[in-house]
């Protein structure tokens, strides 16, 4: 047997089989993920300008990073992105939980409702952006017209301009589009929930709030953290909706990391600097992912699940 193995070329040997099988996947990852990442990391140390391909070899060391650390606009956008992420995720979780609990109670037409609930996810973010841009338009928008017709407001509320309302309007659009992700994952959690602890709690005389607080919610938390991990990555790179609704303005009031990075990289052609910004921004995504995974493990441990 050993003799036969010696005669075989190395890639046909049994010990090498896992690598051969994994090779296409590894190659794809290297080409599609690793190489572009390394390339963009390299460009973040150059003065690479999109319209001057030869500037790719103009090595500037840490100059781009030094600029970022003294760039107040960048850090404001960074902070705003964290705030945006926190508010949007919490709202999506609360609404998603409410919807999931309500749908779980329905005994007739549940499938239809579940399908309808998924509708907002089917739209492209650009369309959602245009839809809410129209709703929140101060002059011809549906919302202001409705408020005026109902006598609730006699002026044109500048939804997309006001310091607080502009960010709030974008959060509404984001929450509208993505709450169903939370709802569907939490609903899956509810479906998978064993009935025994619930019945035992009822027998022991727990009221509905106690059942929810001590049994249902802890059981759902791992599902919630999975949804939050996915959504935090999504929201941290929010671009389309913001770009369509406000373009990061006015006066940078709704500027998030990726609207800023896109402007620097494409409009200003400073791709080297934009990539440096992107690398600093990735730290944000890594931090949130790490945080949610720790929470996920803690929640599973609490429920007696595997580590």
């Amino acid at each position: 047997m050993a003799k036969i193995e010696k005669r075989l070329p190395f890639w046909q040997r049994e010990s090498f089989t896992p690598f051969v099988l994994l090779f296409p996947a590894i190659l794809t990852l290297v080409l599609v993920v690793l190489l572009p990442l390394l390339f963009s990391l390299y460009t973040s140390f150059t003065g690479y300008r999109l319209i001057r391909p030869d500037s790719l070899y103009n090595f500037v060391g840490f100059r781009n990073y030094e600029r970022i650390f003294t760039d107040w606009d960048f850090w404001v956008a960074f902070g705003r992105t964290v705030l945006f992420l926190t508010i949007a995720l919490n709202l999506e979780f609360l609404f998603g939980l409410g919807i999931a609990l309500l749908i779980n109670r329905i005994t007739w037409g549940q499938r239809t409702l579940r399908t309808i609930m998924m509708f907002p996810m089917m739209f492209s973010p650009i369309l959602v952006g245009y839809q809410f841009k129209f709703i929140f338009n101060d002059n011809i928008g549906v919302l202001n017209n409705a408020l005026q017709s109902l006598g609730l407001s006699d002026g044109a509320i500048p939804w997309l301009v006001d310091k607080h309302l502009a960010m709030g309007s974008i959060i509404v659009a984001e929450v509208w589009m993505s709450t169903s992700i939370f709802a569907i994952l939490l609903l899956a959690g509810l479906f998978a929930m064993p009935r025994d602890p619930l019945e035992a709690a009822k027998v022991d005389g727990c009221n509905p709030w106690q059942v929810f607080r001590h049994i249902t919610l802890p059981f759902l938390m791992p599902f919630a953290f999975i949804a939050m991990t996915i959504r935090s990555l999504d929201v941290a790179r929010a671009y389309d909706i913001v770009d369509v609704m406000t373009g990061g303005g006015p006066a940078g009031r709704t500027e998030l990391l990726w609207t800023l990075i896109a402007r620097v990289g494409y409009d200003n052609s400073r791709m080297g600097q934009a990539n440096a910004m992107a690398y600093v921004s990735i730290l944000l995504s890594i931090a949130f992912t790490y945080y949610f995974f720790r929470k996920l493990i803690a929640a599973r441990r609490y429920m007696g699940g595997a580590n």
């Binding site: 044109a156 301009v161 303005g249």
Partner: peptide
Amino acid sequence: VPAGVLNYLWDDTGLGFASGT
């Protein structure tokens, strides 16, 4: 000027004038 004017581009101003307001 409309309060949302800082979000306006060419189409918004043109259509605004055509709306008669």
